[in-house]
Computed example of a mutant assay.
Amino acid sequence: MKRFLFYITTKSYGAYLNLLCFIAPKKATLIAYSLFSQPRKGKLDATNLPPFLAEAEKETFEKNGQNFQTYIWKGDEKIIFLIHGWESNTARWKKLIPHLLETGHTIIAIDAPAHGLSEGKEFNVFQYASYIDIVSKKYAPKYIIGHSIGGKTSLYYQATYQNPSIEKMVLLGAPADFKVIFENYIKLLSLNSRMVQLLHQHYWDYFQIKVEQFSAQHFTPNITAKGFIIHDVEDKIVLYKEGEKITNHWKASVLETTKGLGHSLQNKDVYKKIVDFLSDSN
């Protein structure tokens, strides 16, 4: 029943936008972009945080009038950044963090725009990357671990900001091409060609980037850090071929294939391989 209601709702939104784009194109574009960029879940309640987050040291930063939240587990001078994905928050790292603490390194996790305890209603990779840059200027990370769109953001960040302190990056179930996510949204709402054209123009007008160019193919050649790509062959959210694409374009990366873990990749063997990768001196 829930699936049926979701289907009816999404197709109704699509039909409305397909009509509106001919009558009021600007309004239709803003609504379509809003539906695409505003997470429906992933927020945290500051008064009822999971214990491991409540006990962490916290630091708030600001970007364009909006505060965003970080959590810190102090260790040595080597710093690991954790970058979560869409409709998630720092709580997703609960099982990995104890393994990372065994390295003795400092861990800093960032709540994405409009997620966790970070303010805002809109999520986009460009803003998320700017958050990483702000925190990086205070705490120079040596390692970055990103899950899903957080992995995509990590790629974009390093390719764009060229942070020399970063030596290794771990991407978990990350998409290679933003176009795949974009086209899935188009298909979900059954948007017409006029509406699609307007959305493409919106990305160019506001972010100066073409959707098809927002790809690992264009980012990874600029990244010299070593990459460890972990992707599950049964991932139904971000298909396995996306992990293969990233690895094919990123010469300094290797692909670790799993089976049966899905998109979350929450598994002790995965955690151990991440720690081993970060600890390897080669």
Rank of each mutant, 00 (worst) to 15 (best):
S118K: 05
H105V: 07
G116E: 02
E119G: 03
T103H: 07
E119F: 00
E102N: 15
I108S: 05
P98T: 10
I107S: 05
V125C: 11
F123Y: 15
R92Y: 13
I107E: 04
P113G: 03
N89E: 05
I107G: 02
K95A: 14
G116N: 06
N124F: 07
P113F: 00
L117E: 07
T103I: 07
K94R: 15
H115L: 08
I97W: 00
D111K: 09
L100C: 12
K94I: 11
I108P: 11
R92M: 15
G120A: 01
D111M: 07
G104I: 06
I110D: 05
G120H: 07
E119R: 00
L101Q: 15
G116P: 09
A112R: 01
E122T: 14
D111E: 02
T103S: 13
A112C: 09
H105Q: 13
A109T: 11
E119S: 01
G120D: 05
A91L: 09
A109N: 06
L100I: 09
G120V: 03
E102F: 09
W93D: 02
A114P: 03
T106P: 01
K95S: 14
H99I: 05
I108Q: 06
L100H: 13
S118W: 10
I97E: 03
L96W: 11
H115A: 12
T106K: 00
S118P: 09
S118L: 08
K95I: 08
S118E: 10
L96C: 10
F123Q: 10
A109G: 10
T106A: 00
A112Y: 00
H99W: 13
H115N: 15
E102I: 06
S118Y: 10
V125L: 08
T90L: 12
K95M: 13
A112H: 01
V125W: 10
I97K: 02
L101S: 10
A109V: 03
G104A: 08
S118R: 06
G116F: 02
I108T: 06
K121R: 14
L100T: 11
I97M: 03
F123H: 13
K94F: 03
H105D: 12
E119V: 00
L96T: 12
S118T: 04
R92I: 13
E102K: 15
N124D: 14
L100D: 11
L96D: 14
